[in-house]
Structure formats: structure tokens, C-alpha cells
Amino acid sequence: MKEFAVFWGCTIQARFPFLEKSVRVVLKGMNLPFRDMDGFTCCPEKSLVNNIDHGLWLLTAARNISLVDKEAVDLVSPCTGCVSNLATAKGEILSNPRKEGEINSLLKEVGREFKGTSRLYHLVPFFHDEVGIQKIKQSIKRDFSGMRFAVHYGCHMMRPSHSLKNDDPLEPKKFDNLIRALGGESVEYSTKLMCCGQGLDRVDQHDRALQMARVKLRELKNTGVDAMALCCPSCFLQFDNNQHLMEKEGERFNVPVLYLTDLMGLAMGYTPQALGLDGHRVDTEPFLKKWKEISSRPSAAAAFSEGMKKEGSFI
């Protein structure tokens, strides 16, 4: 596998370092050729930067991409927003030679060159397509048989599809496939592809952001899932932190929120502490307790055989 640089993004490193921990543990545990790189800045974020200066948004993204272009490594990020921003800017620049020329003439002033040759991946399609389901299955020590998950994709994992081209933008499958590879059930639910709504928090509309989070959490409470599975720090902020805020106000949904790498790490045999699960605001203990209980039960086939033996059928 080609070496790749991890683009952590601002949100994970500033607010959720325990998610970085979880990603590092899994990448290392699977012996994947990752490295950290000096020189990255904000991707930059769309709603705060692109909405004020589109040119600077493009230029900053192009500079970040030029760093991996120069090292001839691919880029993988555990943040959907970062990958979507970088890929969208890359697509816009590559589709317009005049714009590419202008960007490169600016980058030349700081000794950089945008080529757009490195591949940009989000962690989910990266695990699905590059690492592969088979290798993931082989790395599991204890799977999630009997556990029900609500996958929340996060809009920017696969949209805009003209730039990301990594899954069906309106009927994605790869995250569900990873959950199944880990032995879990990916539950279908009607608001599965609905945006988390965290963007409203970034424009001073906190109450509306909570209103948006409630829609999905209410459905999941009624559906009865063991956890929500996601892989985006912004969605994590919305469903973990904001759910916790609502819990403090007496509104309980009881939906633990787990990052893809939390689940992979647990299945690979790492402890919740090693993965930084104690940093989550919504209690993950009920999830872990049920998983432990289910895992300690004999499988249906073993229980059946045992029962038959007791009844003397095989004697």
C-alpha cells in the first residue's frame, strides 16, 4: 500500500484529541503506512471561510494539497469536512486551467506548486476500498454479532459526488459494509441520510441545531439501536456533545455515539481506555456492557449443539 499522510483537521486536534487517539491506535494496529506531516493549515472550512472569500478558500486548499503532491503521498482524513473541502477545491481548480494557472502563480511566491496528483480519501472509503473488508475481518478478535448500529454517514463523506466520487451520494453503502464486516447489524432508518445540522451551531443558531439533532435522535430512540456509528468530528459534536447538553436539560435519548475507529479498535481487542472512549460525553457504558454480555453468550450454533448433547441425541 502507498504511504499516506493523515490530515487531522482543526476540530479533531483542538476539541476531540481522543478521536485522534482512536484513529492512531487502529492505523498502527493494522500496520498501515501512515505518517504525520508538517505544514498543514485549516483545510479550510467551508461555512466560515468560503462564505467570506472564495479565492482564499481555494488557495488555502491548493496549498495543503501541494504539500502531499510534493511528497508524492496520498492524503487520508478522519474528517468528512476536510476531505470534502479539499476535493471540491481540487476539482474546481483542475477543471479550469486559467484558475489553476492563477493559483500556481500565487503558490510560486511561497515555493509551492499545486499538481492535484495525490489521492484524497476519507477514512471510511479508504478502509473499504484500500485496506479492504477481508483484511478488516482478519484483524477482528471479537465481533459485534447481535449489536444494532445506526450508521450516520455525514453529508460530506460522499457529497459533492462530482469531486469525491467515492460512493453513491444518495444511497451510500460503504460505511454499512464496514459495520457488517465488524459483525454488527446496520439498521435502516428513515432519517439515515439527513444532515446532522451542526452547521447551524456555527452560524449562531444553536437552538435550531438542537432541533435538527433531535429529529434523528428521536427516531433512533424509538427504533432501538445500541449505538450510532459515524466518522466526522462535526457530526460527533452534534450527536455527542449536543445530545449531552439535552440530557442535562432532562431530555434523554440514550444513543451512545461511536467513531468508526472506536468500533474497529474494540473489535481488534483494544480497551475502551486505550481508544479514548472516556472522552465521550454520552455514556458508552450501556453499549459496552451489552456487547460484553452478548459476547459471553455461546453462539446459537454452539448452544444448539450443547442442548442436543444434553438431551443425549448424539450419544
Binding site: 467551508k46 461555512s47 453529508c155 460530506h156 457529497r159 459533492p160 459526488s161 451520494p169 444518495l170 441520510l193 444532515c195 445540522g197 452547521g199 447551524l200 452560524v203 443558531q205 435550531r208
Partner: peptide, 14 residues
């Protein structure tokens, strides 16, 4: 506030 309530989720684009 209307113009900031677009979440840039790209559903409409797709």
C-alpha cells in the same frame, strides 16, 4: 438568517 440556514449538505445539488 435565511441565507445561513442552508447547511451546504449538497443534497439539492445531487
Amino acid at each position: 438568517v435565511h441565507i445561513y440556514q442552508c447547511l451546504e449538505c449538497h443534497h439539492c445539488l445531487e
